[in-house]
Design a protein around this nucleic acid. Structure first.
Length: 434
RNA sequence: GACCCUGUCGUCUAGCCUGGUCUAGGACAAGAGCUUUUCAAGCUCUCGGCACGGGUUCAAAUCCCGUCAGGGUCACCA
């Protein structure tokens, strides 16, 4: 049975790189009917924080990567010590006393050639002559990363270690420890790193890196996962949008690319749009509600959910993030709308008070206030005025929404309602006549 | 600096293992156009790449060598 693990250290939030490692581990476990183990590497007493553990767990759940088992290294110190003692007894390790502090246990590295058969990269050779002796147990009693990693991967029966490229140089050190402890080593697979747009590692300067940031920005978990999946892996057949359950059927760690990939926000936006389009409007509404409350567009417990669902449907196809909705649909919630300077200059700089007034009167006279009737009366009016529809459509949109772009005008009018539409039109009539 | 990894359009990639079907395919971005209502959606088109140099071969993106470039690691951090 295949057993893989994701081993974050709770010294920060779960970021893009970590979640991609988690994804590939989780995916491999699901693809091969194995187990996905979570190991919290909280041996650094100074930097590890319980709130980061919570954050990481929360983000993993949000992404949909449920674990089968979870362990905390801080609760396993006895095990590490036991294995260290073993090496001490066999004289493969020695004790070093530090002034004022306790003693550290250090592994004596012997020069040799270590070969790693990496599942993604193939054979990698190292000469351990240029590896220093390795601290196993620090003078404060906690194990070092490489030692705890080996002991844990063995005792947790990990069969495949799938981790970031940055661990390649740790691998010979760990291989040495497996050898010294006479333990079988797992398979290794090193994933290429994800880089930022300016080259180099993905950093905070590149934009938001914490998964929770993407969540609050309005990205859908499934879109983010799909995008991450495409970094270093391809389903083939020119497919890009692929449901995770589909991916599970065809994924294999051997097919992962070797090259580092650059994180491209634009493509993520596109991917999010793909998922947003197909998502259930009611679900999206639930996700959007908090954003609207935050902007004070609605008050908790005092809004028409059905109405907002209709508005979401209006914008759904063109959103990159859920936050876009809050920005673009603001005119449905605000009493005093903001007029975009460009919209004012382009469409509202000339006097259209006569046209606005006429249209407003036609709307007033409408027996049936529905989209078709609104459009019909509008088309009739422009026909009578002998002008092209677009000559009036754009200024009306600008007056009603304050923007140059938006959903179809007649739908906007319908959902804005007769009264608000008239109000906004007439406000420009007054201004225009001055 | 030492060691290691990687090099196909600006970006993500297909192709590479099993050389010919590749005058290198798709997607994002960008540009142009269309959509008798905008675009931030949709459709169409365009731009753009095998890092470089040597081999091997009838034939190389595909195999070999070198160069260069980018990245990673060298902690009692993980």
């Amino acid at each position: 049975m295949i057993r893989v693990r994701f081993a974050p250290s709770p010294t920060g939030n779960l970021h893009i790189g970590g979640s991609r490692t988690a994804l590939f581990n989780w995916l491999y476990a699901r693809a091969k009917d194995g187990k996905f183990i979570l190991r919290i590497e909280d041996t650094d007493k100074l930097r590890s924080k319980p709130e980061y553990v919570e954050e990481i767990l929360g983000s993993l759940k949000w992404l949909g990567f449920c674990w089968d088992e979870i362990y905390y290294q801080s609760q396993r110190s006895g095990i590490y010590r036991e294995y260290a003692e073993r090496l001490l007894k066999e004289k493969l390790a020695y004790v070093e006393k530090t002034e004022g502090r306790g003693e550290a246990i250090i592994y004596k590295v012997t020069p040799q050639n270590v070969i790693i058969d990496d599942l993604i990269r193939g054979r990698i050779q190292f000469d351990t002559a240029n590896i220093k002796d390795q601290v196993l147990i620090k003078s404060d009693g906690t194990p070092t990363y490489n030692f705890a990693c080996v002991v844990d991967d063995y005792t947790m029966n990990i069969t495949h270690v799938i981790r970031g490229d940055d661990h390649i140089s740790n691998t010979p050190k760990q291989a040495l420890l497996y050898q010294a402890l006479k333990l079988p080593a797992p398979y290794f697979a090193h994933l290429p790193l994800i880089m930022g747009m300016e080259g180099g590692r993905l950093s905070k300067r590149t934009g938001a890196t914490a998964i929770s940031d993407y969540r609050s920005l309005g990205y859908l978990a499934e879109a983010l996962v799909n995008y991450l999946l495409l970094l270093s892996w391809s389903p083939g057949e020119n497919r890009e949008v692929i449901e995770i359950n589909e991916a599970i059927k065809i994924f294999d760690i051997k097919d992962v690319n070797k090259t580092a990939a650059t994180f491209d926000m634009k493509k993520l936006d596109w991917m999010n749009n793909q998922y947003l389009k197909g998502a259930d409007p009611a679900r999206l509404t639930e996700l959007i509600l908090p954003l609207l409350t935050e902007k004070k567009y609605i008050q908790e417990g005092n809004f028409d959910r059905g109405y907002i669902i209709s508005l979401v449907k209006l914008f759904q196809g063109r959103l990159s993030t859920l936050r876009d909705f809050a920005d673009w649909a603001d005119f449905f919630f605000l009493k005093d709308i903001q007029i975009d300077p460009q919209a004012r200059e382009k469409f509202l700089s000339r006097d259209l008070s006569r046209e606005f007034k006429l249209f407003s009167e036609r709307l007033e006279a409408l027996e049936q206030f529905d989209i078709a009737s609104i459009e019909a009366s509008f088309r009739q009016l422009v026909g009578e005025l002998n002008i092209e529809a677009k000559v009036l459509i754009h200024p009306v949109r600008a007056a009603l929404t304050g923007k140059t772009v938006g959903p179809g005008l007649f739908e906007v009018i319908y959902y804005l309602g007769k009264e608000r539409t008239k109000e906004r039109l007439l406000a420009w009539v007054k201004r225009g006549n001055v």
